[in-house]
Amino acid sequence: MKLLEIKNLWVSINGKQILKGLSLDINAGEVHAVMGPNGTGKSTLASVIAGRSIFNIDEGELIYKGKDLTKLSVDERAKEGIFLSFQYPVEIPGVSMVNFMRNAIDEKRKYFGQDPISMHEFINLMEEKKRLVEMKDTLTQRSVNEGFSGGEKKKNEIFQMAMLEPQLSILDETDSGLDIDALRIVSNGVNKLRTPDNSFIVITHYQRLLNYIVPDVVHVLYDGKIIKSGSKELAMELEKDGYEQFIK
């Protein structure tokens, strides 16, 4: 079953063309790795799927669970199960992680006509998901991302992903800046969330991450479109010989 279909997507920002006719299909349960040099549009792709309004869709279609994604606002997409693990998570001073997560969960529940989560249930859920990413207790008592180290921020993203149980998770360079231990923890967290229904788009520069999160498909994104797709062996080739071989 197709979870996400992207057809001939053209996206620009401030008149600058970033995506140039990108197409991508993702089935339920699949993990897709998107690789490519800097500035080829990987993060733009992630932002556009999530619905960031600073980008302009000039042409193309985004279909998610059979629905036209462009008709949904950012928060509606999130409630429908799209999650973006940010490359650079932003700090929100004074807003505790607990308060933030509770709002996020209750908004989603409200969207589906459910009652707010009980305090008891919420605390249990937090404890469970914190263990999943080996998160220190104190983190959740702090303000959202405020004063977090680079590694803590990335763990925090995966923690939030686990809390919200999305169907389509986009990991935007979640591995960048992680040491080998953190990489293992983050990858384990992701792997535990893999189910036959959930799909992942893993954006990365390095093959290393894909040793931990083994993809079903690897894509090479270059100059705004996918120029090559293949199995996980493609990532090995890229690591060895670079992108040059596919360009032109």
């Binding site: 999530a50 960031r52 940010f86 709002n103 996020a104 969207y111």
Partner: peptide, 8 residues
């Protein structure tokens, strides 16, 4: 955007 991406 960050808040909205979490469904808020």
């Amino acid at each position: 955007f960050y808040c909205q991406q979490r469904g808020i």
